[in-house]
Design a binder for these strands. Structure first.
Lengths: 185, 185
DNA sequence: AACTTCGGTCAACTATGTTGACTCGGCTGT
DNA sequence: ACAGCCGAGTCAACATAGTTGACCGAAGTT
C-alpha cells in the first residue's frame, strides 16, 4: 500500500501470506486476491514479484524433514522411528504434503512432489541400508511410508486416525522394518 | 444442439464426455465448456442436468474393482494377488483415482475418496481375514496398498515404475501378506 | 386454437489469473 | 539544482471460468 516499500519487505509479506494460505486451503482454493489482501498489497504486485500463482506456490511449498532422528537410531529400529517421525509431523508439513498432492494436476507441482518423495523418503532410507537391492528396498519402504501419509491425510481413514499412536508406530514400524532389514529369504 | 432431444440422450452424452475428460485431465483442468463442446451441447445444459460441475464429477467418478480375484485365491496368496490386481488396473481406474486424489480439496470429493478407500481396499480385505484385530490389520494392509498406488501414480517413482512387475508383485505382496496373515512371534 | 411444458440457446453476472498503462517518490548524472 | 530515470505501487481492463435467468420453439394437452 505504502510507496515506502523496500521491495523485499513486500515480497516477504506476500511470501508468508501465501505460505499460510496455500498450506491451509491448498492451491485451487487460494486466490491471488486473498494472498494480496493478506499481505496488504495489490494482486498485480503478487504476480509482479512471483511471475504467476503457480511459481509462487512452488516457491513457498517446500517440504523437508529433519532426518537426524533416522540417523541416530539403531538399524533395527529404523522402521519404528520413521513411522514415529511421520505421525508426529506438524500441521505445516501436513499442509504442504496435501497441497502438493492435490495440486499435482499441474505438471510442475507434480515434479515437485516427485522430487520431494525422493528427497524426503527414498534418499534418507537408502542412506541407512545396504545390500545390492538397497535402492529397491528403500523405494518399497518409501511407498509404505507414503501409504501411511496418504491413508491418514488424503483418504482420512477415521479408524486409523483414532488408533493408538503407540500401536500404529509399533505395527506399521514392524512392516517397514521388514523391507528395510529383511530377516530371512 | 438438436431441439429433438430426449433429455436422457443429451444427459448421457454429457455424462460420457465428462467421464472421459475428468479421467484424462482431472477436475481442475476440465472446464464445463469443454464438456459441453465434447457432448455437442451448451454449457448451461450441463449445469441444468447436473446442478454443478462438482456434482457432475461425483456422478461420473466412481471407482470400483472386481474383487472376485481376491476371493478365489488361498489366503496365503492374498497379498500377492492384491498387488497383482492393483498394478494391473487399467487407465480408467488410474484416471479416476488420480482425479479423486487431486480433487480432494473439495470436501465432497474428499468424502468420495474416503468412501472409495473404504469400499475398494479396506472392506474386501477385512472380509477375507479373521482374528480380533482384523479391522486394524485390514486398514494397515489398505494403507500399504494405497501407498503403492500413491507412489506409482501420484508421486511417480520412476525407478519403481521401471521395476519388473513380477518382482514388485512378489516383494510388495509379501509385505502385504505380513499384515494380513502375521506369522506371529 | 390457446396454454403449458420441456429441451435448448443466448447473454450476462461474478470471480479469477494476468497484463498494461499510469502515478509517484526518490535517486542520479550533469 | 534540476531533468530524467527507475522502481514500487495503483488501477482498469482483459480472457476465461462456473453459473444463472430470460427467452425460443416445438410438441403435447385441454
Amino acid at each position: 500500500m505504502l510507496q515506502t516499500g523496500s521491495a523485499a519487505t513486500t515480497r516477504e509479506a506476500i511470501h508468508s501470506a501465501a505460505t499460510r494460505l496455500f498450506q491451509q486451503r491448498g492451491f485451487a482454493r487460494t486466490t491471488v486476491r486473498q494472498i494480496a489482501a493478506e499481505a496488504d498489497t495489490d494482486p498485480a504486485l503478487v504476480i509482479r514479484h512471483f511471475k504467476s500463482k503457480e511459481l509462487l506456490f512452488l516457491e513457498t511449498m517446500h517440504l523437508t524433514i529433519d532426518d537426524e532422528p533416522l540417523l541416530d537410531v539403531p538399524l533395527e529400529r529404523l522402521g519404528e522411528r520413521l513411522v514415529e517421525l511421520l505421525v508426529g509431523l506438524d500441521g505445516s508439513a501436513r499442509g504442504i504434503f496435501l497441497a502438493l498432492v492435490r495440486g499435482s494436476n499441474e505438471p510442475q507441482i507434480q515434479e515437485r512432489l516427485q522430487a520431494t518423495h525422493e528427497q524426503v523418503l527414498v534418499r534418507p532410507l537408502r542412506g541407512r541400508i545396504s545390500g545390492p537391492d538397497s535402492d529397491v528396498r528403500a523405494r518399497l519402504a518409501a511407498a509404505l511410508a507414503a501409504g501411511l501419509l496418504h491413508t491418514l491425510w488424503v483418504a482420512r481413514d477415521e479408524a486409523l486416525l483414532r488408533t493408538d499412536r503407540a500401536e500404529l508406530i509399533s505395527r506399521y514400524g514392524a512392516l517397514l522394518q521388514a523391507v528395510l532389514t529383511p530377516t530371512d529369504t
